[in-house]
Design a protein around this nucleic acid. Sequence first.
RNA 1: GCACGGGUGGCGGAGCGGUCAAUCGCAUCAGACUGUAAAUCUGACGCCCUAUGGGCUACGAAGGUUCAAAUCCUUCCCCGUGCA
Length: 387
Amino acid sequence: MITFKLTKKSKKSNARVGILKTPHGSIETPSFVNVATQATVKTLTSQDLKSCGAQMLISNTYHLHIRPGEDAVKKHGGVHEFMKWDGPVMTDSGGFQVFSLGFGKDYGTGKILKQKSYEKIKQGAQPKLVKITEEGVEFRSYIDGKKLFLGPKESMGIQEKIGADIIFAFDECTSPLADYAYNKNALERTQRWLLQCIKAKKSDQALYGIVQGGKYKDLRIASAQFTAAQKVDGFGIGGEFGDSTGTMKSMLHTVLKELPENKPRHLLGIGHLKDIEAIIKEGVDTFDCITPTHYARHGYAFVQKGKGGGKMQWEKLDLNNKKYLLSKDPIDKKCDCFTCTTYTRGYLHHLLRAYEITPLRLLTIHNVYFFNKYVASLRNAVKKGQL
RNA sequence: GCACGGGUGGCGGAGCGGUCAAUCGCAUCAGACUGUAAAUCUGACGCCCUAUGGGCUACGAAGGUUCAAAUCCUUCCCCGUGCA
């Protein structure tokens, strides 16, 4: 089980600082949660994660279910022992894969839609490779094409065996192309699934219910109120919130207002640098995002811009670019991560262009360090009453 | 010196009379990426313009054949291999 204690509430915003205590240690919130889908933050060891300031990880039910299987993870002593990470771990329920391997794949969109689209997904529509029913969702494994079924009971059973400290209820993350009727229908089903998750859960893991409702305010409020009324230990906020920091902020405001203050809130899969300050100011305690790791493997490094003081400015460096070849600077002069204190931009550029695998790890180390440090600095700002 | 083989855009390398500014790799540049299907995907890539179109210059060089040549012929210049 977990306990959550608020230690500071901002007077300037809805930001809050707290201690989230889990069977695998406590973390300070707000905190970035590092994405370890397949029981690893890609390219990093658990030891690396410690030195990159990671506090908590989030792993994935769907992916660990298809490989290696939850029974294997359990036989290894659970996810912590399996990956030799003794800190807190969450597992996502597989609800995101309902979208990413379903309509997300069919329409080639992420969960946040960048441009206007006139395509709409109507109530009753089904993705090509995923079948959504009242009982749950039938997938086809992308590994061997085998059918696999994930519903609330299955997700709970799998997450129990994986053994994370915090587990998420099985939900449907809807597509940004889904219309109101689709979202309403999906949300109601997600609510029924939550009740079944609560009923099915046998372990003493903490269970977070997930707020959905897409970009529709009334659905979001209904979802938040419903979820808040259940016996859950915390809240996930999933799906899309519109396509800009502004709309995201206002939707978060709407949702978080409805949630009890004393339970932790996790924002699922959001965390571009431009959004982080805003979501913390709205009162999000934890959030996860693939941005630092994913961009690192594409050769991008996030760096501090300007002299500091006041709001942190940042930019994204594309180290694939030939202009870095002769640079003897570190990625970020102000950064004291292993990569920045050891290697030059020129060397990293060379390794990337040579398609070596080492730079992917070195950039991941930097980006993960950078994100964790940035969030820590915002946390400190809240503590000091500056945010 | 003779005999073959070859010289194509930044590089490698297709094309071998029209649909070729020229397949495809690589390199370069740009864009995308938010609970990871992702060490990935998309686009541009001779020059110029009033740019889902138009003009110009191009396939070692110079001539020629043809309505039409990177593609055929002649000469020359380079490169590789073999024989002297």
